[in-house]
């Protein structure tokens, strides 16, 4: 089937965005609830693979809404308040992998994994980067503090989780694209 324009936003995109956002919110909340070992729950944020994967599978807009709205929902569920810049950052973590969508046709190919992972990493760097930088002029810290206090911890865990789980989801998705053929 011919690919859609990357900026197209029809009913499918609306539904997948909503689905992604809800999933991201619920999974962040749930993995937060499960008493996970390791360095606290922060070390394991497996849910971050959701915005990345939805970006890769359904394009940038879906990815962005998934990350942005999903993070808001997750915080709303677990009562973490509302952190605009971090929501935005999460949005970018889905938006940027979304630009890989048009390059990926076969979700099982190693090449696709590499592309998806690279874009995911880029997404994390830009997204978490923006969020951390925003703290410089929001809470007036300097670059070092932003890097040590915000960027590194967030970015590292997100990248590790992302590059491991996104390919796993891609393989699973490859198995069903045939079934929900349009």
């Amino acid at each position: 089937m011919e690919r859609k324009k990357w900026y197209a936003f029809g009913t499918r995109e609306v539904v997948y965005s909503a689905l992604g956002a809800a999933l991201y919110g619920v999974l962040s909340f749930a993995t937060n609830m499960l008493a996970l070992p390791a360095a606290g729950n922060l070390a394991l944020r497996p849910a971050v693979c959701i915005p990345m994967f939805f970006g890769v599978a359904f394009g940038p807009w879906v990815g962005f809404i998934t990350g942005f709205l999903g993070n808001i929902i997750g915080d709303a569920l677990s009562g973490w308040g509302f952190w605009f810049w971090w929501d935005l950052g999460n949005g970018l973590m889905g938006l940027i992998p979304g630009f890989a969508a048009s390059m990926i046709t076969n979700y099982r190919a190693t090449r696709s994994f590499v592309v998806a992972d690279l874009f995911s990493i880029l997404g994390v760097i830009v997204g978490m980067g923006l969020a951390s930088l925003s703290e410089i002029w929001v809470s007036g810290i300097d670059l070092n503090t932003a890097t040590v206090g915000y960027f590194l911890p967030a970015a590292l865990t997100d990248i590790v989780n992302g590059i491991i789980l996104v390919p796993i989801l891609m393989v699973a998705y490859a198995a069903i694209v045939g079934r929900t053929g349009r």
Binding site: R12, V15, Y16, L19, L23, L27, T31, L34, A35, L36, P37, A38, A43, L44, P46, A47, C49, I50, F53, V160, N161, I164, L165, I168, L169, A172, Y173, A175, I176, R179, T180
Partner: peptide, 29 residues
């Protein structure tokens, strides 16, 4: 509760939870 192994192994062990929920939702969409 008993996720064992290194960080990577632990993260991979989340797949049995995340994959079914995600794929199920996409099929239903």
């Amino acid at each position: 509760e008993k996720l064992s192994g290194g960080l990577i192994a632990q993260i991979r062990k989340m797949a049995p939870l995340i994959v079914p929920v995600t794929i199920n939702a996409i099929v239903g969409a």
